[in-house]
């Protein structure tokens, strides 16, 4: 650690100026935006914008959809990632290939996958073949509420590998000897999972969940790719609301909606940060 070195400014300045110009200034400017009325005098109106936006039905719809989509994506990714990671804890043949196959979609651009997705979820497509093979009626995947399924699946396809890799690393860090002791003491498989695996990886598990959640809040590309700027009501996210308000040059509403949402994300983050501190407290003790 270098202390009292003047050269730090040399390293910091370019990055800091950029962050200042393109991130910090807009961020705090936006706070000001959301508290003024946007007319020529730009009067300070306090929380009036917030009250207006929260009463807006389209905002409510967007917020509801965003939360619902995240609550759909995050648990599914979390559970799948945990199951796959616990299977991958011990090396099996070809697990390197498997891990790569899981992680590869993370780099693939969503828009290039659209065409194959439309084929799969067509009324006569593969997915409906499976559905009928299981004895159900065919589903109109690309309309109404069912449209959420292809979007969520595209999202999971892209992001699952990310969580699996983080989880696997955490699980592999659990000392093998703990399991051996437990087995000697006569603990069965489930007992071992609950009494050793779970407490050991709980902090990581929480982080994976919150990261999955925060990233699921950013689900927009997938919806935009499949549904466009004005998609079905069932997948109209908060980001659509903001983008469309933006297109109408209604900057006050955009920033107000944005900061309402930011508060949710930051509260989640602070929870995560607290969990992190708790973990560090445990480690120190």
């Amino acid at each position: 650690m270098f202390t009292r070195k003047k050269t730090v400014w040399l390293y910091l300045m370019p990055g800091f100026l950029g962050l200042l110009a393109f991130y910090f200034v807009p961020f705090f400017w936006g706070v000001w935006f959301s508290l003024t009325d946007g007319t020529i005098d730009n009067k300070f109106v306090g929380f009036q914008n917030y009250l207006n936006v929260w009463r807006n039905e389209i905002f409510q719809l967007g917020l509801k959809n965003t939360l619902e989509l995240s609550l759909l994506c995050a648990p599914v990714i979390f559970v799948l990632a945990f199951l796959l990671a616990s299977l991958m804890r011990k090396r099996v043949a070809g697990d390197g290939f498997f891990r790569n196959a899981l992680l590869m979609p993370y780099l693939m651009p969503s828009s290039a996958m659209l065409i194959i997705w439309l084929l799969m979820f067509d009324y006569g497509g593969v997915i409906n073949r499976m559905v009928t093979a299981m004895g159900f009626e065919r589903v109109f995947w690309l309309e109404g509420g069912a449209l959420r399924v292809p979007i969520v699946l595209l999202y999971i396809w892209k992001n699952l590998g990310f969580s699996v890799v983080i989880f696997t690393a955490a699980l592999q860090a659990v000392p093998e000897s703990l399991y051996e002791y437990a087995a000697l003491e006569g603990a069965g498989f489930f007992r071992r999972q609950f009494s050793i695996t779970l407490p050991q990886v709980l902090p990581t598990a929480f982080l994976v969940f919150v990261l999955a959640m925060v990233n699921a809040f950013k689900i927009f590309k997938e919806v935009y790719v499949i549904g466009g700027a004005y998609p079905e009501e069932s997948v109209y996210t908060l980001q659509h609301y903001m983008n469309n308000k933006f297109a109408k040059l209604d900057y006050q509403d955009v920033t107000t909606a944005a900061y309402s949402f930011a508060v949710i994300v930051i509260v989640l983050f602070l929870l995560m940060y607290r969990a992190k501190s708790v973990r560090q407290g445990e480690n120190a003790a």
């Binding site: 962050l19 110009a21 393109f22 991130y23 807009p26 925060v214 927009f220 900057y251």
Partner: peptide, 21 residues
């Protein structure tokens, strides 16, 4: 901490003021 927070927020949060900037 600011960098961390900006990393977590969706792009749209700072969209309008970014455009102004």
């Amino acid at each position: 901490f600011l960098v961390l927070m900006l990393m977590l927020l969706p792009f749209q949060v700072t969209m309008a003021p970014s455009v102004m900037t």
